[in-house]
């Protein structure tokens, strides 16, 4: 029987690639640095996913279940790749425990790292306990605790969600749109309004990018059904009067200054390249694109190819990506890896 395919990273893209390969009887070596599979949706404790509305632990959990304990898939958690050498069809991968494995190709599904809001100090994260990130709000919801102010556990009466924190910002070198945060924020705003009907939710935006079919389902619905308030403004700083958070902004559409006291300020944090990307790029000898994500060799002809033949990439490792697109890319990369083993020409180089 042929050698396995190395799938690095057990998030949506990796789980999808492993499942696709196993489905046609190929062996898979699935490696994850965390102690369990699932990737960001599981480890960051996401609540209900866009666009299905299913809980992350159910939807992604099911993806984990279908690759766990399944014959052709060998799962290695809590480990990393130390070295990777060889040529397509005959690579050798060395894991952190010095075990060596022969594989004939690799799919990098190494995902992203959440933007760390302390890099935007003027917006109060790390200074005021009631300034939180979208990830924290997801956790408040998914844990069943509900949306509360971390300082004293009270139910917020007024919540501000600030978009583009760590995205679309030259000042801090994040010259990309993180793609999902607008839709996620609309979704969270509706969740908050549903749980706390007396709570007013404001979203401060530069542009609303609920692209594709998310427009009516999230943006319009949050306005029309859930009465979420949208303010076109980027606030300058979050301060505090000792009790409430003070957010000063200008409603740019009507040219009026507005200062609103808030109980909870939520940063809609973006997706940074995985902090390990430089290391991964040197271990696997693949190129990174200018923002620091893993570079795709081709947009049209070879799905998921990297700059090195035999190594493929899928999901948010290539740049900000949604869960469903990551899953699609995982399957596409699996297909590309298979085609390459069958001797199909590889477009890379």
């Amino acid at each position: 029987m042929s050698k396995p395919v190395l799938v690095l990273g057990g998030g949506p893209a990796g789980l999808s690639a492993a499942h696709a390969l196993a489905g046609i009887g190929r062996k898979v070596l699935l490696v994850d640095k965390e102690d369990r599979l699932g990737g960001a949706p599981i480890h960051s404790g996401y609540a209900k996913l866009v666009p299905s509305g299913e809980w992350a632990k159910d939807a992604i959990g099911a993806m984990v279940d279908r690759v766990t304990g399944r014959e052709p898939i060998e799962v290695r958690t809590s480990t990393t790749v130390k070295a990777f050498e060889g040529a397509p069809g005959a690579f050798t991968v060395t894991l952190a425990d010095d075990s060596r494995h022969e594989v004939d190709s690799a799919i990098l599904c190494t995902g992203f790292t959440h933007f760390d809001s302390v890099n935007k100090p003027e917006w109060g994260f790390g200074t005021f306990p009631d300034v939180v990130t979208t990830t924290q709000v997801e956790q408040m919801i998914s844990s069943g605790q509900g949306v509360r102010c971390p300082s004293d556990g009270r139910r917020p009466k007024r919540v501000a969600i600030l978009l583009c924190v760590g995205s679309r910002d030259r000042q801090i070198g994040r010259e990309w749109c993180s793609k999902v945060c607008c839709t996620v924020s609309c979704n969270l705003a509706m969740e908050i309004r549903e749980e706390l009907p007396d709570c007013h939710v404001y979203i401060y935006y530069m542009d609303i990018r609920t692209y594709g079919l998310h427009e009516d389902a999230y943006y319009w619905r949050s306005q029309e059904e859930f009465k979420v308030k949208y303010i076109k403004a980027r606030i300058a700083e979050v301060t505090s009067d000792g009790h409430k958070l003070i957010v000063k902004g200008e409603d740019t559409l009507v040219k009026r200054p507005i200062t609103i006291p808030f109980d909870l300020v939520v940063h809609a944090i973006g997706m940074d390249p995985n902090v390990d990307n430089l290391l991964l790029a040197s271990i696997f000898d693949v190129k990174l694109e200018k923002h620091g994500h893993i570079e795709r060799a081709s947009v049209y002809s070879a799905m998921g190819a990297t700059s090195r033949p035999g190594i493929f990439v899928a999901g948010a490792a290539t740049g900000p990506e949604t869960i469903d697109d990551s899953i699609a890319q995982g399957q596409a990369a699996a297909m590309a890896a298979l085609a390459q083993v069958q001797g199909a020409p590889v477009a890379a180089e």
Binding site: M206, A233, R234, A236, E237, E250, T252, K255, P257
Partner: peptide, 24 residues
Amino acid sequence: CWQCGSCTNACPVNAINPDFNPRF
């Protein structure tokens, strides 16, 4: 410029005189 209003919101002159509006 894409009219986000960061400038006006950061502006100390705007805080005194709302008509002073660089974004606008």
